[in-house]
Design a protein around this nucleic acid. Structure first.
Length: 298
DNA sequence: CGAACGACCTGCAGGC
DNA sequence: TGCCTGCAGGTCGTTC
């Protein structure tokens, strides 16, 4: 396995006399985090008690709390859920909040396996089950929230794009007073969660809308189409098992395949699959943004 | 208040 | 071959 493959895979290797071992990693937008969440649920026998926590490197995007080990010890992990791009490990003592950043991953570590350089946190659970959090770029986040406390980071998030609150009318209201480019607006987690650079570009292509258009210039019908495109793009990606730039693997080792159907993302200079025009690329809000000049006229 | 932009970090690709 | 540069991504803080 190449380094790149080792970096981003969710796979199970059969190990004699042992449970299944595997890694869960992605370029995380909502579909990938959802896939990781489902992968963890299938790998871990919940409820599961955490016996010990070892923090080998505190320096993530925000320092891992010094008392994390103390807080988590004895925690009976009951649920693993997703909200936006966050994973919530909830149980008896509170909630371990985790964002995978760009390169975060979870791995079930085999009994005699040593941790690697970027394995920053290790959870030891009952029955000797070991989990490692790996994050080479350290853009991830790991914080602890005792039961009964609110998680400020989640307070101002917008609706889930696949939930019933994300309606054309809601999106239209959110867009109508903002002059920022529509792509920037749909990537704003206060407006709607989970839409990152890849799926924003893809959804705008499907809706026939240029990423640079000020969001308030879009009428209700185009916003309705965009709302539908966001839902379709994300749910297709979840069905496909999540996708990443290079090397996402889903449980069982098969490759996530949604990346093969990108219409514009990462295809600057290539021919549009619909009209044959050359895909163009700009920088918007500091992010590369690809679009088809013919299919996306608004 | 909203919009734009830089910082954070590492691995990788491409150029020389 | 080896060095250097630029780019990729999500979030947050700062500046305008």
């Amino acid at each position: 396995m190449s380094n790149a493959q080792a970096k981003c895979c969710l796979s199970r290797q059969s190990v004699a006399n042992a449970p299944e071992y595997g890694t869960v990693a992605v370029m995380p937008e909502l579909p990938e985090v959802e896939t990781v969440c489902q992968g963890l649920r299938s790998l871990l026998p919940l409820p599961l008690r955490i016996i010990d926590v070892s923090v080998r490197n505190h320096h993530l995007r925000q320092p891992i709390p010094a008392d994390l080990a103390q807080r988590c010890r004895g925690h009976l992990l009951q649920r693993i859920e997703r909200r936006a791009k966050y994973l919530l490990w909830t149980g008896s003592h509170g909630c371990l909040l985790n964002h995978l950043g760009m390169t975060g991953s979870w791995r079930v570590v085999a009994p005699n396996e040593s941790l690697a350089i970027h394995d920053h946190v290790e959870l030891t659970c009952e029955d000797g089950l070991r989990l490692a959090y790996r994050d080479p770029r350290r853009f991830g986040l790991l914080t602890w929230h005792p039961s009964g406390t609110t998680i400020a980071r989640l307070e101002h998030l917008g609706p889930e794009p696949l939930g019933s609150d994300f309606t054309p009318t809601y999106l239209w209201r959110a867009c109508r007073q903002r002059s920022a480019p529509i792509k920037t607006v749909i990537m704003d987690q206060r407006v709607v969660v989970g839409v990152g650079n890849i799926y924003a570009a893809e959804a705008l292509f499907t809706a026939g809308i240029r990423p640079q258009v000020p969001s308030k210039r879009l009428g209700r019908e185009r916003i309705r189409r965009l709302c539908e495109s966001i839902r379709d793009t994300l749910s297709n990606a979840i069905r496909a098992g999540g996708s990443t730039i290079r090397d996402f693997r889903q449980a069982g080792g098969s490759q996530g395949y949604f990346q093969h159907t990108f219409a514009v993302y990462g295809r600057a200079g290539d021919a549009c699959r619909v009209c044959g025009s050359s895909i163009r690329q700009d920088i918007l809000g500091g992010r590369s943004s690809a679009w088809c000049p013919r299919c996306q006229r608004w």
